[in-house]
Design a protein around this nucleic acid. Sequence first.
DNA 1: ATGCTCGCTCAACAGTTGTAGAGTCAAATT
DNA 2: AATTTGACTCTACAACTGTTGAGCGAGCAT
Lengths: 200, 200
Amino acid sequence: MSEPTTSEPGTRAARRAASAQRILKAAQAEFGEHGLEGTTVRAIAQRAGVDPSLVIQHYGSKSDLFAIAVRLPGESTGDDLTGHLFDVLDVRLSEPPPETRALVRSMLTAPEATQAMRDFLNERIANLARASDRDDAELRAALTVSSILGLTVARHFLKLDALATEISGEQIETVLRPWLTAALGDGSSDGGATGTGPDA
Amino acid sequence: MSEPTTSEPGTRAARRAASAQRILKAAQAEFGEHGLEGTTVRAIAQRAGVDPSLVIQHYGSKSDLFAIAVRLPGESTGDDLTGHLFDVLDVRLSEPPPETRALVRSMLTAPEATQAMRDFLNERIANLARASDRDDAELRAALTVSSILGLTVARHFLKLDALATEISGEQIETVLRPWLTAALGDGSSDGGATGTGPDA
DNA sequence: ATGCTCGCTCAACAGTTGTAGAGTCAAATT
DNA sequence: AATTTGACTCTACAACTGTTGAGCGAGCAT
Protein backbone atom coordinates (compact mmCIF):
# COMPACT_ATOMS: atom_id res chain seq x y z
CA MET A 1 0.00 0.00 0.00
CA SER A 2 2.55 2.46 1.04
CA GLU A 3 4.90 2.24 -1.91
CA PRO A 4 4.20 2.83 -5.60
CA THR A 5 4.23 0.21 -8.29
CA THR A 6 7.21 -0.84 -10.33
CA SER A 7 10.87 -0.08 -10.08
CA GLU A 8 11.19 0.87 -6.45
CA PRO A 9 13.71 -1.31 -4.66
CA GLY A 10 11.45 -3.21 -2.34
CA THR A 11 12.13 -6.84 -1.56
CA ARG A 12 12.04 -9.00 -4.71
CA ALA A 13 14.14 -6.86 -7.04
CA ALA A 14 16.46 -5.98 -4.22
CA ARG A 15 16.95 -9.64 -3.45
CA ARG A 16 17.69 -10.24 -7.09
CA ALA A 17 20.27 -7.50 -7.16
CA ALA A 18 21.79 -8.89 -4.01
CA SER A 19 22.02 -12.30 -5.65
CA ALA A 20 23.72 -10.79 -8.67
CA GLN A 21 26.24 -9.09 -6.46
CA ARG A 22 26.89 -12.23 -4.46
CA ILE A 23 27.47 -14.13 -7.69
CA LEU A 24 29.81 -11.45 -8.96
CA LYS A 25 31.85 -11.43 -5.80
CA ALA A 26 32.04 -15.20 -5.83
CA ALA A 27 33.11 -15.11 -9.46
CA GLN A 28 35.84 -12.58 -8.77
CA ALA A 29 37.17 -14.64 -5.92
CA GLU A 30 37.08 -17.85 -7.90
CA PHE A 31 38.59 -16.29 -11.01
CA GLY A 32 41.23 -14.68 -8.85
CA GLU A 33 42.22 -18.04 -7.43
CA HIS A 34 42.00 -20.37 -10.38
CA GLY A 35 41.81 -18.22 -13.46
CA LEU A 36 39.19 -18.17 -16.20
CA GLU A 37 39.62 -21.71 -17.43
CA GLY A 38 40.31 -23.07 -13.98
CA THR A 39 37.03 -21.97 -12.47
CA THR A 40 33.74 -23.66 -13.20
CA VAL A 41 30.34 -22.08 -13.24
CA ARG A 42 29.34 -24.65 -10.68
CA ALA A 43 32.09 -23.54 -8.33
CA ILE A 44 30.97 -19.94 -8.61
CA ALA A 45 27.38 -20.94 -7.98
CA GLN A 46 28.28 -23.03 -4.96
CA ARG A 47 30.36 -20.21 -3.50
CA ALA A 48 27.45 -17.83 -4.01
CA GLY A 49 24.99 -20.37 -2.63
CA VAL A 50 22.86 -20.51 -5.75
CA ASP A 51 22.13 -22.79 -8.67
CA PRO A 52 24.60 -22.85 -11.58
CA SER A 53 21.94 -21.93 -14.07
CA LEU A 54 21.18 -18.77 -12.13
CA VAL A 55 24.70 -17.60 -12.80
CA ILE A 56 24.02 -17.90 -16.51
CA GLN A 57 20.60 -16.31 -16.18
CA HIS A 58 22.23 -13.31 -14.58
CA TYR A 59 25.30 -12.84 -16.69
CA GLY A 60 24.60 -14.63 -19.96
CA SER A 61 27.70 -16.75 -20.10
CA LYS A 62 30.87 -17.53 -18.23
CA SER A 63 32.89 -15.29 -20.53
CA ASP A 64 30.53 -12.38 -20.05
CA LEU A 65 30.73 -12.84 -16.32
CA PHE A 66 34.49 -12.87 -16.51
CA ALA A 67 34.53 -9.66 -18.53
CA ILE A 68 32.39 -7.98 -15.91
CA ALA A 69 34.28 -9.48 -12.99
CA VAL A 70 37.47 -8.07 -14.43
CA ARG A 71 35.97 -4.85 -15.73
CA LEU A 72 37.50 -5.02 -19.15
CA PRO A 73 38.11 -1.42 -20.16
CA GLY A 74 36.48 -0.50 -23.43
CA GLU A 75 38.66 2.31 -24.76
CA SER A 76 38.41 4.84 -22.01
CA THR A 77 41.42 6.86 -21.02
CA GLY A 78 41.48 5.18 -17.69
CA ASP A 79 40.21 7.48 -15.07
CA ASP A 80 39.32 5.06 -12.33
CA LEU A 81 41.82 2.72 -13.85
CA THR A 82 44.61 5.03 -12.87
CA GLY A 83 44.74 3.14 -9.65
CA HIS A 84 44.29 -0.51 -10.46
CA LEU A 85 47.97 -1.26 -10.73
CA PHE A 86 49.55 1.81 -9.29
CA ASP A 87 47.68 2.03 -6.06
CA VAL A 88 49.15 -1.36 -5.52
CA LEU A 89 52.38 0.56 -5.61
CA ASP A 90 51.57 4.06 -4.47
CA VAL A 91 49.14 3.69 -1.66
CA ARG A 92 50.31 0.51 0.01
CA LEU A 93 51.04 -2.96 -1.14
CA SER A 94 48.80 -5.15 0.95
CA GLU A 95 46.52 -7.13 -1.30
CA PRO A 96 45.28 -6.43 -4.80
CA PRO A 97 41.55 -5.90 -5.18
CA PRO A 98 39.53 -8.88 -6.47
CA GLU A 99 39.17 -7.54 -10.01
CA THR A 100 42.91 -7.09 -10.28
CA ARG A 101 43.53 -10.54 -8.91
CA ALA A 102 41.13 -12.03 -11.44
CA LEU A 103 42.74 -10.15 -14.31
CA VAL A 104 46.34 -10.88 -13.39
CA ARG A 105 45.62 -14.52 -12.67
CA SER A 106 44.31 -15.11 -16.17
CA MET A 107 46.54 -12.76 -18.07
CA LEU A 108 48.85 -15.50 -19.34
CA THR A 109 46.23 -18.03 -20.36
CA ALA A 110 43.01 -16.23 -21.29
CA PRO A 111 43.29 -14.20 -24.50
CA GLU A 112 40.68 -11.71 -23.32
CA ALA A 113 42.64 -11.09 -20.15
CA THR A 114 45.91 -10.86 -22.04
CA GLN A 115 44.42 -8.24 -24.31
CA ALA A 116 42.94 -6.28 -21.44
CA MET A 117 46.21 -6.33 -19.55
CA ARG A 118 48.13 -5.33 -22.65
CA ASP A 119 45.85 -2.38 -23.32
CA PHE A 120 46.00 -1.27 -19.73
CA LEU A 121 49.77 -1.45 -19.45
CA ASN A 122 50.36 0.12 -22.86
CA GLU A 123 48.30 3.10 -21.87
CA ARG A 124 50.02 3.31 -18.52
CA ILE A 125 53.41 3.28 -20.24
CA ALA A 126 52.37 5.96 -22.71
CA ASN A 127 51.20 8.18 -19.87
CA LEU A 128 54.44 7.71 -18.01
CA ALA A 129 56.58 8.33 -21.07
CA ARG A 130 54.70 11.49 -21.87
CA ALA A 131 55.97 13.01 -18.65
CA SER A 132 59.58 12.72 -19.75
CA ASP A 133 61.50 14.26 -22.62
CA ARG A 134 64.20 11.65 -22.95
CA ASP A 135 64.33 9.89 -26.28
CA ASP A 136 64.23 6.50 -24.59
CA ALA A 137 61.44 7.59 -22.29
CA GLU A 138 59.05 5.00 -23.58
CA LEU A 139 61.47 2.16 -23.06
CA ARG A 140 62.21 3.33 -19.55
CA ALA A 141 58.55 3.70 -18.78
CA ALA A 142 57.98 0.19 -20.08
CA LEU A 143 60.75 -1.12 -17.87
CA THR A 144 59.26 0.64 -14.89
CA VAL A 145 55.79 -0.69 -15.47
CA SER A 146 57.15 -4.15 -16.14
CA SER A 147 58.96 -4.05 -12.84
CA ILE A 148 55.78 -3.22 -11.00
CA LEU A 149 53.99 -5.99 -12.81
CA GLY A 150 56.74 -8.42 -11.89
CA LEU A 151 56.64 -7.32 -8.31
CA THR A 152 52.90 -7.82 -8.11
CA VAL A 153 53.19 -11.28 -9.60
CA ALA A 154 56.13 -12.29 -7.45
CA ARG A 155 54.61 -10.98 -4.25
CA HIS A 156 50.91 -11.71 -4.46
CA PHE A 157 50.76 -14.68 -6.79
CA LEU A 158 54.04 -16.55 -6.54
CA LYS A 159 54.43 -15.46 -2.94
CA LEU A 160 58.21 -15.42 -2.97
CA ASP A 161 59.88 -15.71 0.40
CA ALA A 162 61.66 -12.38 0.26
CA LEU A 163 58.40 -10.62 -0.57
CA ALA A 164 56.14 -12.37 1.88
CA THR A 165 53.00 -10.49 2.76
CA GLU A 166 53.96 -9.59 6.30
CA ILE A 167 57.67 -9.15 5.97
CA SER A 168 57.51 -6.21 3.64
CA GLY A 169 54.75 -3.63 3.82
CA GLU A 170 56.07 -0.19 3.09
CA GLN A 171 59.65 -1.29 3.26
CA ILE A 172 59.27 -2.33 -0.34
CA GLU A 173 58.05 1.10 -1.26
CA THR A 174 60.96 2.70 0.53
CA VAL A 175 63.42 0.74 -1.52
CA LEU A 176 61.48 0.66 -4.73
CA ARG A 177 60.29 4.21 -5.15
CA PRO A 178 63.66 5.95 -5.48
CA TRP A 179 64.77 3.09 -7.67
CA LEU A 180 61.92 3.60 -10.06
CA THR A 181 62.05 7.37 -10.10
CA ALA A 182 65.76 7.17 -10.74
CA ALA A 183 65.19 4.72 -13.51
CA LEU A 184 62.71 7.01 -15.16
CA GLY A 185 64.56 10.29 -14.95
CA ASP A 186 68.16 9.44 -14.36
CA GLY A 187 70.47 8.01 -16.97
CA SER A 188 72.78 5.10 -16.38
CA SER A 189 76.11 6.63 -17.27
CA ASP A 190 75.23 9.98 -15.76
CA GLY A 191 76.84 10.73 -12.47
CA GLY A 192 74.67 12.29 -9.83
CA ALA A 193 72.15 10.40 -7.74
CA THR A 194 69.68 13.19 -8.21
CA GLY A 195 66.65 11.49 -6.82
CA THR A 196 63.84 13.27 -5.08
CA GLY A 197 65.78 12.94 -1.92
CA PRO A 198 64.08 10.26 0.10
CA ASP A 199 64.33 10.32 3.81
CA ALA A 200 67.09 8.27 5.34
CA MET B 1 73.17 -60.51 -38.60
CA SER B 2 75.51 -57.64 -38.52
CA GLU B 3 74.23 -56.01 -35.37
CA PRO B 4 73.73 -57.53 -31.92
CA THR B 5 70.44 -58.12 -30.27
CA THR B 6 68.66 -55.67 -28.08
CA SER B 7 69.30 -52.07 -27.26
CA GLU B 8 71.16 -50.88 -30.28
CA PRO B 9 69.39 -47.95 -31.92
CA GLY B 10 68.38 -49.45 -35.20
CA THR B 11 65.06 -48.59 -36.77
CA ARG B 12 62.14 -49.50 -34.51
CA ALA B 13 63.46 -48.23 -31.18
CA ALA B 14 64.91 -45.20 -32.86
CA ARG B 15 61.56 -44.45 -34.42
CA ARG B 16 59.98 -44.77 -31.02
CA ALA B 17 62.45 -42.37 -29.50
CA ALA B 18 61.85 -39.99 -32.35
CA SER B 19 58.11 -40.17 -31.71
CA ALA B 20 58.67 -39.44 -28.05
CA GLN B 21 60.75 -36.42 -28.91
CA ARG B 22 58.23 -35.17 -31.42
CA ILE B 23 55.50 -35.49 -28.82
CA LEU B 24 57.59 -33.67 -26.26
CA LYS B 25 58.33 -30.81 -28.59
CA ALA B 26 54.68 -30.57 -29.56
CA ALA B 27 53.74 -30.58 -25.89
CA GLN B 28 56.18 -27.81 -25.05
CA ALA B 29 54.88 -25.68 -27.88
CA GLU B 30 51.27 -26.28 -26.96
CA PHE B 31 51.86 -25.75 -23.24
CA GLY B 32 53.82 -22.63 -24.07
CA GLU B 33 50.92 -21.22 -26.02
CA HIS B 34 47.88 -22.23 -24.00
CA GLY B 35 49.15 -23.33 -20.61
CA LEU B 36 48.60 -26.60 -18.82
CA GLU B 37 44.84 -26.46 -18.54
CA GLY B 38 44.42 -24.83 -21.90
CA THR B 39 46.09 -27.57 -23.89
CA THR B 40 44.45 -30.87 -24.60
CA VAL B 41 46.18 -34.18 -25.07
CA ARG B 42 44.45 -34.36 -28.42
CA ALA B 43 45.98 -31.08 -29.50
CA ILE B 44 49.45 -32.29 -28.58
CA ALA B 45 48.87 -35.53 -30.44
CA GLN B 46 47.61 -33.77 -33.53
CA ARG B 47 50.59 -31.43 -33.51
CA ALA B 48 52.92 -34.39 -33.22
CA GLY B 49 50.98 -36.30 -35.85
CA VAL B 50 50.14 -39.24 -33.63
CA ASP B 51 47.21 -40.71 -31.79
CA PRO B 52 46.24 -39.17 -28.45
CA SER B 53 46.62 -42.46 -26.66
CA LEU B 54 50.22 -42.68 -27.76
CA VAL B 55 50.94 -39.52 -25.82
CA ILE B 56 49.72 -41.22 -22.68
CA GLN B 57 51.55 -44.44 -23.50
CA HIS B 58 54.77 -42.49 -23.69
CA TYR B 59 54.46 -40.15 -20.75
CA GLY B 60 51.90 -41.72 -18.46
CA SER B 61 49.63 -38.74 -18.03
CA LYS B 62 49.19 -35.17 -19.08
CA SER B 63 50.61 -33.93 -15.78
CA ASP B 64 53.68 -36.11 -16.10
CA LEU B 65 54.23 -34.85 -19.59
CA PHE B 66 53.92 -31.28 -18.38
CA ALA B 67 56.45 -31.88 -15.63
CA ILE B 68 58.90 -33.23 -18.19
CA ALA B 69 58.12 -30.56 -20.76
CA VAL B 70 58.89 -27.93 -18.15
CA ARG B 71 61.69 -29.81 -16.46
CA LEU B 72 60.50 -29.33 -12.94
CA PRO B 73 63.62 -29.17 -10.81
CA GLY B 74 63.68 -31.69 -8.02
CA GLU B 75 65.84 -30.05 -5.37
CA SER B 76 69.05 -29.51 -7.24
CA THR B 77 71.09 -26.40 -6.67
CA GLY B 78 70.44 -25.30 -10.18
CA ASP B 79 73.51 -25.81 -12.24
CA ASP B 80 72.06 -25.81 -15.70
CA LEU B 81 69.20 -23.80 -14.29
CA THR B 82 71.51 -20.89 -13.74
CA GLY B 83 70.58 -19.81 -17.20
CA HIS B 84 66.86 -20.37 -17.66
CA LEU B 85 65.84 -16.90 -16.63
CA PHE B 86 69.08 -15.01 -16.66
CA ASP B 87 70.28 -15.94 -20.06
CA VAL B 88 67.07 -14.35 -21.17
CA LEU B 89 68.58 -11.26 -19.65
CA ASP B 90 72.32 -11.71 -19.90
CA VAL B 91 72.95 -13.24 -23.24
CA ARG B 92 70.29 -11.68 -25.37
CA LEU B 93 66.57 -11.30 -25.12
CA SER B 94 65.23 -12.80 -28.28
CA GLU B 95 62.82 -15.58 -27.41
CA PRO B 96 62.60 -17.77 -24.32
CA PRO B 97 63.24 -21.46 -24.87
CA PRO B 98 60.15 -23.71 -25.10
CA GLU B 99 60.48 -25.08 -21.58
CA THR B 100 60.63 -21.58 -20.16
CA ARG B 101 57.65 -20.52 -22.20
CA ALA B 102 55.68 -23.51 -20.96
CA LEU B 103 56.60 -22.82 -17.36
CA VAL B 104 55.93 -19.11 -17.40
CA ARG B 105 52.68 -19.52 -19.27
CA SER B 106 51.23 -21.75 -16.58
CA MET B 107 52.82 -20.19 -13.55
CA LEU B 108 49.70 -18.29 -12.51
CA THR B 109 47.15 -21.05 -13.02
CA ALA B 110 48.83 -24.42 -12.55
CA PRO B 111 49.90 -25.09 -8.95
CA GLU B 112 52.78 -27.30 -10.06
CA ALA B 113 54.11 -24.54 -12.27
CA THR B 114 53.60 -21.95 -9.56
CA GLN B 115 55.59 -24.05 -7.15
CA ALA B 116 58.35 -24.69 -9.65
CA MET B 117 58.60 -21.03 -10.48
CA ARG B 118 58.59 -20.08 -6.82
CA ASP B 119 61.39 -22.51 -6.01
CA PHE B 120 63.43 -21.36 -8.94
CA LEU B 121 63.09 -17.67 -8.19
CA ASN B 122 63.61 -18.09 -4.46
CA GLU B 123 66.88 -19.83 -5.08
CA ARG B 124 67.89 -17.24 -7.62
CA ILE B 125 67.17 -14.49 -5.11
CA ALA B 126 69.10 -16.24 -2.38
CA ASN B 127 72.10 -16.57 -4.66
CA LEU B 128 71.96 -12.93 -5.59
CA ALA B 129 71.55 -11.78 -2.02
CA ARG B 130 74.48 -13.87 -0.89
CA ALA B 131 76.76 -11.71 -3.04
CA SER B 132 75.92 -8.60 -1.08
CA ASP B 133 76.45 -7.63 2.53
CA ARG B 134 73.67 -5.10 2.86
CA ASP B 135 71.03 -5.91 5.41
CA ASP B 136 68.30 -5.42 2.85
CA ALA B 137 70.17 -7.45 0.27
CA GLU B 138 67.49 -10.08 0.03
CA LEU B 139 64.77 -7.56 -0.60
CA ARG B 140 66.81 -5.85 -3.27
CA ALA B 141 67.63 -9.16 -4.89
CA ALA B 142 63.95 -10.01 -4.89
CA LEU B 143 63.11 -6.71 -6.51
CA THR B 144 65.73 -7.32 -9.16
CA VAL B 145 64.53 -10.79 -9.97
CA SER B 146 60.93 -9.62 -9.96
CA SER B 147 61.82 -6.93 -12.47
CA ILE B 148 63.33 -9.49 -14.80
CA LEU B 149 60.29 -11.67 -14.42
CA GLY B 150 58.04 -8.74 -15.19
CA LEU B 151 60.09 -7.83 -18.19
CA THR B 152 59.90 -11.37 -19.55
CA VAL B 153 56.16 -11.45 -19.07
CA ALA B 154 55.59 -8.00 -20.53
CA ARG B 155 57.82 -8.57 -23.51
CA HIS B 156 57.30 -12.15 -24.57
CA PHE B 157 53.82 -12.92 -23.30
CA LEU B 158 51.89 -9.68 -23.16
CA LYS B 159 53.89 -8.29 -26.05
CA LEU B 160 53.69 -4.70 -24.96
CA ASP B 161 54.24 -2.12 -27.68
CA ALA B 162 57.27 -0.49 -26.11
CA LEU B 163 58.95 -3.89 -25.73
CA ALA B 164 58.11 -5.32 -29.12
CA THR B 165 60.36 -8.11 -30.26
CA GLU B 166 62.15 -6.20 -32.98
CA ILE B 167 62.27 -2.74 -31.53
CA SER B 168 64.43 -3.57 -28.59
CA GLY B 169 67.12 -6.23 -28.76
CA GLU B 170 70.13 -5.27 -26.74
CA GLN B 171 68.89 -1.74 -26.19
CA ILE B 172 66.92 -3.12 -23.30
CA GLU B 173 70.01 -4.62 -21.83
CA THR B 174 71.85 -1.33 -22.19
CA VAL B 175 69.25 0.47 -20.18
CA LEU B 176 68.39 -2.31 -17.80
CA ARG B 177 71.74 -3.65 -16.72
CA PRO B 178 73.12 -0.55 -14.97
CA TRP B 179 69.72 -0.03 -13.51
CA LEU B 180 69.70 -3.45 -11.95
CA THR B 181 73.29 -3.42 -10.78
CA ALA B 182 72.71 -0.04 -9.22
CA ALA B 183 69.60 -1.33 -7.54
CA LEU B 184 71.50 -4.22 -6.10
CA GLY B 185 74.62 -2.50 -4.86
CA ASP B 186 73.77 1.12 -4.53
CA GLY B 187 71.43 2.44 -1.92
CA SER B 188 69.11 5.36 -2.38
CA SER B 189 70.10 7.32 0.67
CA ASP B 190 73.60 5.94 1.03
CA GLY B 191 76.37 7.81 -0.64
CA GLY B 192 79.00 5.38 -1.81
CA ALA B 193 78.54 3.33 -4.93
CA THR B 194 80.38 0.37 -3.53
CA GLY B 195 79.19 -2.11 -6.06
CA THR B 196 81.25 -4.10 -8.50
CA GLY B 197 81.78 -0.95 -10.46
CA PRO B 198 79.83 -0.97 -13.69
CA ASP B 199 81.70 0.20 -16.71
CA ALA B 200 81.38 3.67 -18.23
C1' DA C 1 59.04 -68.41 -44.59
C1' DT C 2 57.03 -68.39 -39.86
C1' DG C 3 56.09 -66.86 -35.46
C1' DC C 4 56.78 -63.34 -32.23
C1' DT C 5 57.42 -58.63 -30.68
C1' DC C 6 55.81 -54.26 -30.01
C1' DG C 7 54.92 -49.42 -31.68
C1' DC C 8 50.91 -47.66 -32.88
C1' DT C 9 45.85 -46.74 -33.88
C1' DC C 10 40.70 -47.47 -33.07
C1' DA C 11 36.94 -47.40 -30.32
C1' DA C 12 35.06 -46.57 -26.15
C1' DC C 13 34.02 -45.00 -21.39
C1' DA C 14 33.23 -42.34 -17.42
C1' DG C 15 33.51 -37.77 -15.77
C1' DT C 16 33.05 -32.85 -16.27
C1' DT C 17 31.94 -28.81 -18.65
C1' DG C 18 28.78 -24.70 -20.13
C1' DT C 19 24.21 -23.94 -20.99
C1' DA C 20 18.96 -24.36 -22.17
C1' DG C 21 14.13 -25.16 -20.87
C1' DA C 22 10.53 -26.67 -17.92
C1' DG C 23 8.80 -26.44 -13.56
C1' DT C 24 8.13 -24.43 -8.57
C1' DC C 25 6.92 -21.49 -5.08
C1' DA C 26 6.65 -17.21 -2.70
C1' DA C 27 5.76 -12.42 -3.35
C1' DA C 28 3.28 -8.75 -5.68
C1' DT C 29 -0.92 -7.18 -7.84
C1' DT C 30 -5.85 -7.04 -8.34
C1' DA D 1 -8.86 -14.32 -1.81
C1' DA D 2 -7.55 -15.23 -6.44
C1' DT D 3 -4.31 -14.58 -9.94
C1' DT D 4 -0.27 -13.21 -12.08
C1' DT D 5 4.48 -12.34 -11.93
C1' DG D 6 9.17 -13.60 -11.82
C1' DA D 7 13.32 -15.17 -9.13
C1' DC D 8 14.96 -19.34 -8.51
C1' DT D 9 15.87 -24.57 -8.88
C1' DC D 10 15.69 -29.19 -11.29
C1' DT D 11 16.66 -31.96 -15.00
C1' DA D 12 18.81 -32.72 -18.94
C1' DC D 13 21.89 -32.52 -22.91
C1' DA D 14 25.54 -32.29 -26.06
C1' DA D 15 30.31 -31.41 -26.29
C1' DC D 16 34.70 -32.26 -24.61
C1' DT D 17 38.08 -34.08 -21.32
C1' DG D 18 41.94 -37.64 -19.87
C1' DT D 19 42.65 -42.29 -20.09
C1' DT D 20 42.13 -47.44 -21.08
C1' DG D 21 42.13 -51.89 -23.51
C1' DA D 22 41.70 -54.51 -27.64
C1' DG D 23 43.38 -55.04 -32.05
C1' DC D 24 46.30 -54.24 -36.36
C1' DG D 25 50.35 -54.51 -38.92
C1' DA D 26 55.15 -53.92 -39.83
C1' DG D 27 59.82 -55.21 -38.12
C1' DC D 28 62.65 -58.70 -35.80
C1' DA D 29 64.56 -63.42 -34.58
C1' DT D 30 64.63 -68.07 -35.76
